[in-house]
């Protein structure tokens, strides 16, 4: 069960001890930082010469800094790199998809500025711009994945739920029953491992009856998957039946008032983390403005000169 993406690991690190609300806030902040535009607004540099690689290098540099920050957080929080690498397996298909789209159809305003790698005889070409743009997107997705992994592996599902509940509080002013959403999310999170175990058991049972989940073309695979999904669905219903009875017996009323056993506390260390986060956000917004507005090449600060 260790391979489950972002499964909570009960460790004792500063990141684990952080307030869940702050962690969700941090996730949003860092994700925003991932997606801010760090490229200069134009490919033509201040001397009037087009700089193709320089144009993309800005973004790579800033994303590199961000990756370093996230890497440090991963080390502090003792997030398992193995599960991170495993989770990358899941986005392979997406990367290939992006590559196909972006390599052949690079996104630029005028075709003159595009830099072909190869030009085919029929006029089609593969452009450097497409490849580099694709790499930007992939890098951003990987960083986002890492962030999510850190959140889910350092925060108990229930704490995430409480934090979400806290964020949804303003909605209760509009008479939206937020506590029901919280309960639904927490139950869903609670039953993921149970259902996974169940699905593995069903899979084994079906394998012993001769269903092969790995072989065959897509149509055969779909057929074998239905032998897994139908029993799983049926057992889902029986679980939910049992669960609702158990909840009823223990006096649960969806719209009734409840007290909370767990209370999230905002500690002094959280305040410190909050300030650090704001500084990080400020820094990245600053970089963004510098690049976009003042056309500054960041790599020049590292003593690298000249046009690429």
């Amino acid at each position: 069960m260790d391979s489950v993406f972002g499964k909570y690991r009960n460790l004792n690190t500063p990141i684990h001890k952080m307030d869940a609300r702050l962690k969700i806030f941090a996730l949003i902040i860092l994700m925003v930082a991932c997606f801010l535009p760090y490229a200069r607004s134009s490919i033509i540099n201040s001397e009037g010469i087009p700089e193709y690689f320089g144009y993309y290098a800005n973004t790579f540099l800033v994303l590199g800094i961000l990756a370093l920050i996230i890497f440090i957080i991963m080390i502090i929080s003792k997030t398992s790199f193995k599960s991170f690498l495993k989770s990358l397996n899941a986005i392979w298909l997406m990367i290939i998809f992006l590559l196909i789209f972006m390599v052949f159809i690079p996104r630029t305003t005028s075709t003159e500025t595009l830099h072909p790698i190869v030009t085919f005889s029929n006029g089609y070409a593969i452009y450097w711009d497409g490849v580099l743009q694709c790499l930007h997107v992939v890098l951003r997705i990987i960083l986002m994945l890492a962030l999510t992994l850190i959140l889910t592996s350092t925060t108990a599902p229930m704490d995430i739920t409480y934090a979400l509940d806290w964020y949804m509080k303003p909605l209760s002013l509009l008479k939206i029953p937020t506590q029901i959403f919280t309960m639904i999310i927490s139950l869903a999170l609670r039953f993921i491992p149970t259902l996974l175990e169940k699905s593995q058991r069903i899979m084994k049972a079906q394998k012993s009856r001769g269903v092969d989940f790995n072989k065959g073309f897509i149509s055969a695979k779909v057929k074998s998957i239905t032998t897994l999904i139908v029993p799983l669905l049926v057992s889902c219903f029986s679980i939910s039946d049992d669960l609702s009875v158990a909840m009823y017996v223990r006096g649960y009323e969806p719209y009734g008032k409840r007290t909370n056993y767990k209370v999230l506390t905002f500690k002094l260390s959280d305040l410190l983390a909050f300030i650090i986060l704001l500084v990080i956000l400020g820094f990245f917004i600053f970089l963004c403005v510098m690049a976009q507005h003042y056309h500054i090449n960041f790599w020049e600060f590292f003593g690298i000169k000249g046009t690429w």
Binding site: A156, P157, M158, L189, R190, L243, R250, G256, K262
Partner: peptide
């Protein structure tokens, strides 16, 4: 199927919360 909370303490507290 009757374990409602995500941890032991949450589950014991569930009825009390209600």
């Amino acid at each position: 199927n009757q374990f409602i909370g995500s941890t032991v303490e949450d589950d014991i507290a569930f009825g009390l919360e209600n």
